[in-house]
């Protein structure tokens, strides 16, 4: 069994890539996918630490994170469809109705 630190490092790298995608991309779909990558990175950390402690709680937490991710994807994509009907664009810089 490996030490969990390698998994934690991988988790940090995946999370950083997700952050880069969220801050640097304009396409709303790709931003939502980057959020999924970030949630997955957190799951890797939960599983690595949980299994190295021999405890099932890590798995339970990762399970809850997955549920939230599924709900987030469903609602986020529904919002995206509603916005696309309204504005005919998926460019995040043009979606500034709430800004004044």
């Amino acid at each position: 069994m490996m030490e969990p630190s390698a998994y934690l490092l991988l988790s940090g790298i995946l999370f950083g890539i997700g952050v880069a995608g969220v801050v640097a991309r304009k396409n709303v779909l790709i931003i939502l996918m980057s959020v999924e990558i970030m949630l997955n990175a957190v799951n890797v950390a939960f599983i690595a630490v949980g299994s190295s402690l021999g405890d099932v709680t890590g798995s339970i937490f990762a399970f809850m994170v997955m549920t939230v991710a599924a709900a987030e994807a469903a609602v986020g994509l529904a919002i995206l469809i509603a916005i696309y009907r309204l504005k005919e664009t998926i460019d995040i810089t043009e979606l500034s109705i709430l800004k004044w």
Partner: peptide
Amino acid sequence: ESALIVRRSGMAGTPAADSG
């Protein structure tokens, strides 16, 4: 930053049987 934190924390891994 996360790499530095992981390096300093030094988590020891005990073998897990079938925790998942």
